[in-house]
Deep mutational scan, measured.
Amino acid sequence: MAEQVALSRTQVCGILREELFQGDAFHQSDTHIFIIMGASGDLAKKKIYPTIWWLFRDGLLPENTFIVGYARSRLTVADIRKQSEPFFKATPEEKLKLEDFFARNSYVAGQYDDAASYQRLNSHMNALHLGSQANRLFYLALPPTVYEAVTKNIHESCMSQIGWNRIIVEKPFGRDLQSSDRLSNHISSLFREDQIYRIDHYLGKEMVQNLMVLRFANRIFGPIWNRDNIACVILTFKEPFGTEGRGGYFDEFGIIRDVMQNHLLQMLCLVAMEKPASTNSDDVRDEKVKVLKCISEVQANNVVLGQYVGNPDGEGEATKGYLDDPTVPRGSTTATFAAVVLYVENERWDGVPFILRCGKALNERKAEVRLQFHDVAGDIFHQQCKRNELVIRVQPNEAVYTKMMTKKPGMFFNPEESELDLTYGNRYKNVKLPDAYERLILDVFCGSQMHFVRSDELREAWRIFTPLLHQIELEKPKPIPYIYGSRGPTEADELMKRVGFQYEGTYKWVNP
């Protein structure tokens, strides 16, 4: 592979701008107003304001973009700056750019259920340069409990009458099928589907988006991507930290609602779906819905739930269990780990287990898709061969690698495990991989909904998990304890083995 010439960040961002501006969906010269509902909250200060700053800094926003914060707290732009700027990672050389960014910011205080507050917000936006005809993007960085009041008031008082209007809704989209349907029906009564952007930030990850290209742009994968060759698929999300004093919020939802029903299920769809007619948003989402419709409700015998306990040999936070978090209700049975087996009941995947695993306070930070292939028929190497695996590593250190057998150097035919490896950090030294939120917010500006969740996708996802969630809430089974920093409950490994996964433990990928 030829040595790549190092590029400056300015040059890299210039390439990104060229890609972005050559499309006809990006209205570079139009006025846009980006409204952050819930501007005083954690999500706004840690993710949304920093993301908008990065896009502005790199010249990736339309030229005439204004940012308006809205929340109940009586704040000023200076207050917003004070709480969000520490997350910007701005350099001293960017000081003038930073001043320009905050000059485009404003803030309006108001209630979430008060019509007069929204009329005041609308008047404020109209007073901005060309504000009355601007395109408006409303980001709901809010708890779902206020979605209905907020969307109703936005629709009645704050819509642009000339430009387009788009609304970005953060997960969780309800707690179960019934609450999700209620919320979807409410929002759909106010906005068209092409105006609604239900954001799952995992769909903005580079390697998640790469799944489609790997599958449908490489001839070698087509013939082997089926039940005849693939023994099982494992989708993993692991965090090495616990709730760390923020367990009160987590306890309301648990690990299945927080990660599995959305992030992991979306990745499953991209692995299992048929080739779409095109890369058009609805063509892709149509195929994802077909996959979900082929999955039956989760069966309790295919589920393992766990909850982390303190590690007596650990240090600091590792010595504390979930129930030691003062914000967690006493005696909570909320799971911090889950392993679930699903089956896609169609011709391509009949009988292939899709194993979804996620948890907190585990032994490493990792998100990946792992396809394990069947054993080689007619073994001539005296059971020395391990199964081939194709691994798409989402985070950290984005990579695609194939675990395969090669001859060990020497005189004899002794096979050993090795890999074919594409590590993004080595291959793409001159490429700026956008943060997931950067990519998705740019998608909203461009009107691309491919990486957002459609209402029928959402409904099918909740259909699969709601009976299990209701059973857990009714019966309150005690989750299996696992030690902070471990791989999780051993019962999860036993479940995976029972459905056909072979864990060798003899080879570990190392970032080159």
Rank of each mutant, 00 (worst) to 15 (best):
L98M: 08
R166W: 00
E239V: 10
W225H: 01
L142V: 08
C13T: 11
F237S: 05
G59I: 01
I162Q: 04
N229V: 04
D30A: 15
R227I: 00
G254R: 00
M125F: 07
V68W: 00
D100T: 08
R166D: 00
I168V: 06
D181I: 05
D58L: 10
F102W: 11
F241E: 13
T51C: 08
P62Y: 02
V146K: 11
G242H: 09
L55I: 03
R81H: 03
A116F: 09
G254D: 11
G23W: 15
Y112C: 03
L137R: 00
A90V: 10
R198D: 00
S73D: 06
F87S: 04
R192K: 09
R81L: 06
L203Q: 14
R81E: 03
L203V: 15
K171L: 06
R246I: 14
E99R: 09
R182Y: 14
L211V: 11
Y49A: 01
G14D: 10
R72C: 11
F173C: 02
L7E: 08
A109M: 12
I230W: 01
N153T: 03
L235G: 04
P223I: 00
Q111C: 03
T91R: 12
E252S: 07
M125C: 11
R227N: 05
H155G: 06
V146W: 10
P144G: 14
D100P: 02
N153A: 09
N135E: 02
K47L: 14
F101G: 00
Q83F: 14
G254I: 02
E252G: 11
P50V: 01
D181W: 05
D58V: 05
I52W: 02
V108Q: 05
G14S: 14
T151I: 08
C13A: 06
Y197P: 01
H124C: 08
H155V: 04
Y249R: 15
L43R: 09
M125L: 15
E206S: 14
S84E: 04
V5K: 14
L142M: 09
W53T: 00
S132N: 14
Y202M: 15
N165H: 07
Q28G: 07
K238S: 13
I230P: 01
I234C: 12
N226M: 03
Y249K: 15
E94D: 12
F191P: 00
E252H: 10
L214D: 02
R120K: 12
M37N: 00
E156T: 09
G204E: 15
E85Q: 10
F138G: 00
H129A: 07
K89F: 09
S123K: 12
W164Y: 04
S189Q: 12
Y147S: 14
R198C: 03
Y49W: 06
Q209K: 11
Q133P: 15
L98P: 00
Q11T: 08
L61Y: 00
R215F: 01
A134F: 04
L140F: 06
Q83G: 12
Y249F: 14
R81Y: 04
V77E: 07
S157F: 10
F241P: 07
V12E: 11
K97M: 11
N126H: 09
G69E: 00
L190R: 08
W225M: 03
G59A: 03
I48G: 01
I196S: 00
D228R: 12
K95F: 14
N122I: 05
H124R: 07
N105M: 11
L7C: 06
R166E: 00
L177Q: 08
L7N: 09
Y107G: 02
A116S: 06
A115H: 14
W164I: 07
I36N: 01
K46F: 11
F241V: 15
R182K: 08
P62A: 07
D58A: 03
G69K: 00
D24G: 15
R215H: 03
M159A: 08
F250A: 04
R9T: 13
V146L: 15
W54R: 09
L142N: 15
S123E: 09
L177T: 09
W225K: 01
R215I: 00
P172S: 05
F101M: 01
E156P: 03
G131A: 06
D79W: 04
F101W: 02
Q111K: 08
V213L: 05
Q195P: 00
R246C: 14
D181H: 06
I80M: 06
K45P: 02
Y112N: 03
G254M: 01
L211W: 09
I187F: 11
H32C: 11
F87H: 09
F101Y: 03
F87A: 04
H32V: 13
E63S: 09
G59K: 04
A25Q: 05
I168L: 06
K46W: 08
G41Q: 07
P86V: 10
D79H: 07
R74L: 07
L61D: 00
D176R: 05
V5R: 04
F250E: 05
Q119V: 09
P143Q: 11
E85N: 03
S157K: 07
E244N: 12
V208C: 15
G248F: 11
I168Q: 00
P143N: 10
L140Q: 00
L43T: 07
L43A: 05
I52Q: 00
D114A: 05
Q111Y: 11
A109T: 13
G110N: 03
I48Y: 01
L140D: 00
W54P: 03
I255C: 12
D228A: 10
I15L: 11
Q22P: 03
G174N: 05
G38A: 02
E193R: 01
I35T: 06
N135M: 05
Y112S: 04
F191T: 00
L183T: 13
P50G: 02
W53F: 04
L142C: 11
I196L: 06
S8I: 04
G131T: 12
S157R: 13
I224H: 05
K152W: 11
S40D: 07
H155I: 02
I36V: 06
A134I: 10
Y107H: 03
D228V: 06
I196V: 12
G248N: 07
W53I: 00
N165W: 00
F221P: 03
R104D: 01
W225E: 00
H186Q: 13
L20M: 15
K82V: 08
S73H: 06
S40E: 06
A127R: 06
L130R: 08
F216Y: 13
V169P: 00
C158V: 08
V233F: 02
I80K: 00
P223E: 15
V68D: 00
I48A: 05
T10C: 08
Q83Y: 12
D42I: 14
I199W: 02
A25N: 11
A2C: 11
G242A: 07
N218L: 00
H201P: 10
Y147V: 15
N64I: 02
R182F: 08
G38L: 00
G69S: 03
T65E: 00
A141K: 00
L183G: 07
R74G: 10
N135Q: 03
C232I: 02
R219Y: 03
K205P: 14
I33D: 03
Y147R: 15
S73C: 09
F88W: 04
R257I: 10
Q209H: 15
Q83S: 10
I35D: 01
I15Y: 05
A71W: 01
M37H: 02
I199C: 05
S29P: 10
E18S: 10
N210P: 02
A115V: 12
A109F: 06
S160F: 01
L128R: 05
S123D: 13
S84F: 09
D251C: 03
K95D: 07
